[in-house]
Amino acid sequence: MIQVLAFYLFATLAILSAVLVIMSRNPVHSVLWLILAFFNAAGLMVLAGAEFIAMLLVIVYVGAVAVLFLFVVMMLDIDFAELRAGFVRNFPLGMLIALVLLAELVFGIGAWRAGSIDLAPAGATEAAPMAASNIAAIGQVLYGKYLFLFESAGIILLVAMVGAIVLTHRDRKDTRPQNISKQNRRRPQDATVNMRPEIGEGVQL
């Protein structure tokens, strides 16, 4: 009973906030609605028994990606009036595309229900290990069967990171970065000197 209630709560909120993402006039509000949508999606994942995916969704999308997104959107200087004008102008086109996509979905699912699309049975390759917990099962697959692909994907991310740095990093000669170890090596006797200057003579530094 509670699960059914929770499902409808999460599902309704997810759809509602997704609608508000595109309907709200302020882009910052849009991002915040998007975060709410992610959150409800995570809730649905928990209900589906995929708690690991749910937590990843929150950590990665809500905790990292959306923060950076919010960061950028907050810094933008946007003319809201102009934005709205564009929305009204493109609204029919957007609706048309949405309708086409909807129709395709309906046709596709309809055809499948009618039996004219012969999909392969789900999980035709192997049965999922049911006994282990979520994380254990994913770990088994990622570090066992798909080890090679997993590690290669890591290299892809590394390449992307190196690429981003190569394309944007510029060595500036005019900065004076702090050298912590140099500062730590410095001793009082290197920097100070005791003197007993004669009156009226001044000090030679």
């Binding site: 708690e51 937590m55 990843l56 905790g63 917990s133």
Partner: peptide
């Protein structure tokens, strides 16, 4: 829950 620590992180 069995993902307690992940929950804390999230």
């Amino acid at each position: 829950i069995n993902v307690g620590l992940l929950y804390v992180l999230a």
